[in-house]
């Protein structure tokens, strides 16, 4: 166990509390701050906590789609595959991102700059097909616009 995981585990338990109900907030903080869920960190938390066990944390982390066990890229692209976007051709948008980045859905580019995901609905169905890049939603995306989006600087809400 690297000492930093140990310190981080202590800090997280202090910040949230040692109770089952904090499992998800703790995992969310780890996902946001580390970009992924490092298994050694879960083990470090479990070894210090009384009410959070490694198997429970792992079970929860594997259940929800928000959590990933491999580091994410600097930018996360979420292509909406909700019903509205689907009927407006979201599959072609996914294909365009896949070929522009040369990765499959769920993967990260070799240089670590982009992770490609699909999501169920961004709530922007009126502007379908929609894509969210780092929390910023783009509407009426076309396969042609994909390359231009990848060049956009300053994502974020």
């Amino acid at each position: 166990m690297t000492p930093s995981w140990s310190n981080l585990a202590t800090e997280l338990l202090q910040r949230f509390g040692d109770e089952t109900r904090y499992a998800i907030p703790i995992l969310q903080a780890i996902q946001t701050e580390q970009g992924y869920i490092p298994i050694p960190l879960l083990e470090a938390i479990a070894s210090k906590a009384h009410h959070l066990q490694a198997n429970q944390l792992y079970g929860v982390a594997t259940f929800y789609s928000q959590f990933t066990f491999t580091p994410k890229g600097v930018h996360t692209i979420k292509v909406c595959m909700g019903t509205a976007c689907f009927v407006k051709g979201a599959e072609h948008i996914v294909d365009a991102f896949k070929s522009a980045l040369s990765i499959e859905v769920g993967e990260t580019t070799v240089d670590g700059s982009f992770t490609l995901q699909t999501v169920a609905c961004l709530g922007c169905c009126s502007l379908a097909p929609a894509v969210m890049i780092d929390g910023h939603v783009f509407g009426q995306v076309t396969p042609e616009r994909v390359k231009e989006l990848l060049k956009t600087k300053g994502f974020g809400l």
Binding site: T20, R21, V60, F63, S65
Partner: peptide, 21 residues
């Protein structure tokens, strides 16, 4: 945390309790 089934009320509560939803 990203699970459609958590909209179902008993799953929602399980999720709030820190469990698999």
């Amino acid at each position: 945390a990203g699970a459609f089934v958590c909209g179902e009320e008993t799953a929602l509560m399980a999720s709030m309790e820190g469990e698999r939803g």
